[in-house]
């Protein structure tokens, strides 16, 4: 090993030699670049360029024959439009209710599953994860029908208790809440699996020590399990917040953002602006604002959950 070290050291003192050595290193490692090449081409063409382009076009107005620079006009338009604030408010409410509900219920379900035997564990894990491998398009189609005013499951259940049928998705007062309830009742499969994995890696000796100190099951859960699951919780909160800010499929499949703007969300608004009204510059500005909001939220959550204690 040692002689090799000396050879590389020997090349270092001369600056010129170092410069050429970068080139020789590139030449020597040409195979590594060839391995990277296919992915790199795709990455630059379909991610890097579009990201830069999104920024650029947010300062332009799209015209059929070339675009025009309009400065911050698109951004001003975003912040002056009531549609944007409606969408922001709805997305925000959706996130604030569903994210804590989903993460906490995933924690509780995982805590219930964890002590069970191997067979029951994988059975329940499957039962809770299976619904999440099917497309949201399908989930939305079924729920739309379950919410149907005339022959849906929900109004049938209400009828059993002698209550009048509700036009769940058709009126502003219940439409958004119907979507929120639906999101809460779709199991957070990823969360349950990650919590289970994290619980499996907590050392038994901690629980044994707590038992000797006279702690009961609930105290152990509160004082040992939950604090040690914190990194997982942070990850899940971030993951589901980002996902929740991008809510789209349910909206287009179930309400189309309506009635009025009752269920308009940010991504559905971007979709409408870009691909129904073809206002590309305006849609780009909305996308950049969405990105900024997600980024700010992620940073806040990261700080709060990380340095809480």
């Amino acid at each position: 090993m040692k002689p090799v070290q000396q050879v590389t050291n020997a090349a270092k003192p001369v600056d010129l030699a170092r410069k050429t050595s970068v080139w020789t290193q590139i030449k020597k490692n040409y195979a590594a670049y060839l391995f990277l090449l296919p992915k790199l081409i795709l990455f630059v063409a379909f991610i890097m360029i579009p990201v830069v382009w999104a920024f650029v076009s947010s300062f332009q107005e799209y015209k059929i024959f070339g675009s025009e620079w309009v400065g911050f006009e698109n951004y001003v338009k975003v912040f002056q439009s009531s549609a944007f604030y409606d969408a922001l408010k709805n997305t925000f409410l959706f996130t604030v209710v569903t994210v804590p509900f989903n993460v906490i219920s995933a924690l509780i379900i995982a805590s219930l599953i964890h002590p069970l035997g191997k067979w029951s564990q994988s059975f329940f894990r499957g039962a809770f994860y299976l619904p999440t491998v099917t497309s949201m398009v399908i989930v939305a189609m079924v729920w739309r029908w379950m919410y149907n005013q005339d022959f849906g499951l929900f109004n049938y259940v209400l009828g059993l208790f002698g209550m009048d049928p509700v036009n769940w998705l058709g009126q502003s007062s219940t439409a958004l809440w119907s979507l929120i309830i639906m999101q809460c009742l779709i199991p957070f499969g990823v969360g349950i699996i990650l919590y289970l994995a994290a619980m499996g890696s907590i050392s038994h000796s901690l629980y044994e020590a707590a038992t000797i100190d006279g702690a009961n099951g609930f105290q152990k859960w509160l004082r040992i399990t939950i604090p040690l699951l914190k990194p997982t919780t942070l990850y899940l909160v971030l993951l589901s917040t980002i996902g929740s800010f991008q809510v789209f499929t349910q909206i287009i499949m179930m309400t189309g953002g309506g009635p009025g703007s009752a269920t308009e969300t940010l991504v559905h608004l971007i979709y409408k602006t870009g691909f129904r009204d073809f206002e590309f510059g305006y849609a780009s500005a909305q996308s950049i604002v969405l990105f900024a909001i997600i980024l700010i939220f992620s940073i806040i959550q990261f700080r709060v959950l990380r340095y809480d204690d």
């Binding site: 290193q25 670049y33 990455f43 379909f46 990201v51 999104a54 870009g274 780009s284 980024l295």
Partner: peptide, 27 residues
């Protein structure tokens, strides 16, 4: 190899950007 870290961080950095941001330019 030279440029390795640059490439890696460029790739990981864009993982944070939601797909909707690039809808219009991709189109």
């Amino acid at each position: 190899f030279p440029g390795k870290n640059l490439i890696f961080y460029a790739i990981v950095g864009t993982m944070m950007i939601p797909g909707q941001v690039t809808l219009v330019p991709m189109f």
